[in-house]
Amino acid sequence: MIKLINLNKVFQTKTIETVALNEINLHIKKGEFVSIMGPSGCGKSTLLNMMGLLDKPTSGKVLIGGTDLSNYNDTQLAAFRNQKLGFIFQSFHLINDLSVIDNVELPLLYRKSTARDRRTKALAALEKVGLSHRTTHYPSQLSGGQRQRVAIARSIICEPELILADEPTGNLDSVMGNEIMNLLQNLNKEGATIVMVTHDEQMAHGTDRLIRLFDGQTVAVHQNSKEEVC
């Protein structure tokens, strides 16, 4: 599903050069649930941004579904993200002035779809995350866990092949965190490939594979015997 080949990312200012990723080679198979762990500043989010085509590598290649995306322009990359990728963020990134259902519909605005189609798909996504009774609420009226479930509904409305989750349980208590993890595991069972950045060992052990990063390099890869998070 994803192939990272000799991936490097260097952030450069006038005075400092920071190596965020150093010769990363990684292959994530279709249907896999992979977690990435590491200390703060080790390059986890940068790696996720590269996979999500939100940032460009200094060198190396990112292949998603066998497609080399190096030569894609901004519009092509945006269309690719819209069709193939789903994003979940630690701070949810919901638009506070839009209702729950309007937030979920958001990705469909960037492709050809009718208002009725958007509404039907958003309702189905909200049903899946157990929030069909909160469609007209606003994010400020929801708990942290509910907000993250809205964000998950938004990430799956376009039925992406790959879901990228950047510390999805980072802002939640353990109960809420477990709920979200169960949701992600269910999505994975339904066929979605998921890459999750986390600081939580327990959450990471609930995935197929754990990749540990340190100073922008892959230092360890563990194959987990996947356990359900309760």
Binding site: A79, H93, L106, Y110
Partner: peptide, 10 residues
């Protein structure tokens, strides 16, 4: 950033 991530071109 969110809109860009969700598929909005610049």
């Amino acid at each position: 950033g969110l809109r860009r991530a969700l598929g909005a071109p610049a």
